[in-house]
């Protein structure tokens, strides 16, 4: 087999490999002295930036009602079919509200499409990444778990106004 032609001829020092190996060793040794970046999770918690896509939640207005009008667009756009909305009529001005709003967290892929499509800014991605459940039933989050007061979502809402 003829020798392959190299793009670049190596110098003798490079052919020895050893200098490069020592450079590599020096590099790793230096990084050994750097402080660690690990967060020790249950004690120290990562607080994500506003751009983070944690679990989707529903915005709860100051008067305790949900902002959602049960239009079902999030449910339609959801690529994972995670959302089920059952609308009903309400006496409020918005006429329509979700009698039932469920997100199946086993299906959800945190794509944020629901947030993007919502015409009311009623469903937003939160900073919550701690999702634990032990059965399929527990994984279906109803309104009780989904509603989050608007004050706690200021960050994200502002982010959406600026960048969406």
């Amino acid at each position: 087999m003829p020798d392959k032609k190299r793009k670049k001829d190596l110098t003798f020092a490079q052919k020895l490999y050893l200098p490069e190996i020592f450079k590599g060793l020096a590099l790793t040794f230096k990084s050994m002295l750097k402080p660690s970046v690990t967060m020790e999770y249950p004690e120290v918690k990562f607080v994500p930036p506003a751009a983070y896509r944690g679990r989707p939640v529903l915005v709860e207005e100051k008067d305790g009602t949900e902002r959602c009008v049960a239009c079902g667009l999030c449910s339609r756009v959801c690529p994972a079919l995670a959302i089920e909305v059952q609308p009903e009529e309400t006496e409020l001005e918005k006429e329509r509200y979700p009698k039932l709003f469920e997100i199946n967290m086993i299906r959800c892929i945190f794509c944020g499409f629901c947030e993007e499509v919502c015409p009311e800014e009623a469903i937003v991605m939160s900073k919550d990444y701690e999702l634990v459940f032990t059965s399929r039933e527990d994984a279906i989050y109803g309104k009780d778990k989904l509603l989050v007061p608007v004050d706690q979502l200021k960050d994200r809402l502002e982010f959406l106004r600026n960048f969406k």
Binding site: C71, G72, P87
Partner: peptide, 9 residues
């Protein structure tokens, strides 16, 4: 039928 569902569902 009002507010029962969306047609596409």
């Amino acid at each position: 039928w009002r507010f029962k569902t969306r047609v596409w569902e």
